[in-house]
Amino acid sequence: MGKSIDYGNLMHNAMRGLIRQVLENVRKDGLPGDHHFFITFDTMHPDVELADWLSDRYPEEMTVVIQHWFDNLEVNEDSFSITLNFGDSPEPLFIPYDAIRTFVDPSVEFGLRFETQDSDDDDDFDEEDDSAISDSEVADFEPAQKSDTHVEKNDAPKEAEIVSLDNFRK
């Protein structure tokens, strides 16, 4: 056993499990009420699959909206796939959970932000930094780039609140 408990890695895994469970529920039952999601992910992640024109347009990260129209939602242990509409052009996406940078449901002011780790091995987390969300990011969250998916003009998203797990540490 190592010198310390890697809380950062444990929190990231738990938050990804939460996203997986939410998406699994949506796959089975559809989106309830006014729920919808902004999911920002790393388009350069080696396992992300998207059309070349999308990766050219969003070379670092992309935010997709799961709201009015989506199809073929498949939820797996480590990833999900979905077909979304980009300017009347349905495009399939394959997104591993570890490529997700933010997950926001503005209808209930809920959001998660995953810290990016600058290390040689992206799967290892720095033992010194075990916080998944910094307090400075809690107040300043805005979804990154908006996607071309259809969002009706009268559906203005509410400000999302990012939950900081540091508040619950002793």
Rank of each mutant, 00 (worst) to 15 (best):
Y7M: 08
M11Y: 12
H12C: 11
A14N: 11
M15Y: 14
R16I: 15
L18R: 01
I19N: 09
E24G: 09
V26Y: 15
R27M: 13
D29I: 03
G30L: 15
L31T: 02
H35N: 15
H35F: 12
H35W: 12
F37I: 05
I39A: 01
I39N: 04
T40C: 12
D42N: 09
H45R: 05
P46V: 04
V48C: 11
V48K: 05
E49R: 03
L50A: 14
A51T: 02
E61R: 12
T63R: 02
V65N: 04
H68Y: 15
W69M: 04
F70V: 07
N76M: 06
E77Y: 05
E77I: 05
N85S: 10
G87T: 04
P90N: 07
E91P: 07
P92S: 07
P92H: 00
P92C: 03
F94K: 01
Y97E: 12
Y97R: 02
I100D: 00
D105C: 09
V108G: 08
E109K: 12
F110D: 02
R113C: 08
R113D: 03
D118F: 12
D121S: 08
D122L: 14
D123Q: 11
D123T: 14
D124R: 14
F125L: 09
E127R: 04
D130Y: 03
S131A: 04
A132V: 10
S134V: 03
A139E: 13
A139T: 15
F141Q: 11
Q145S: 13
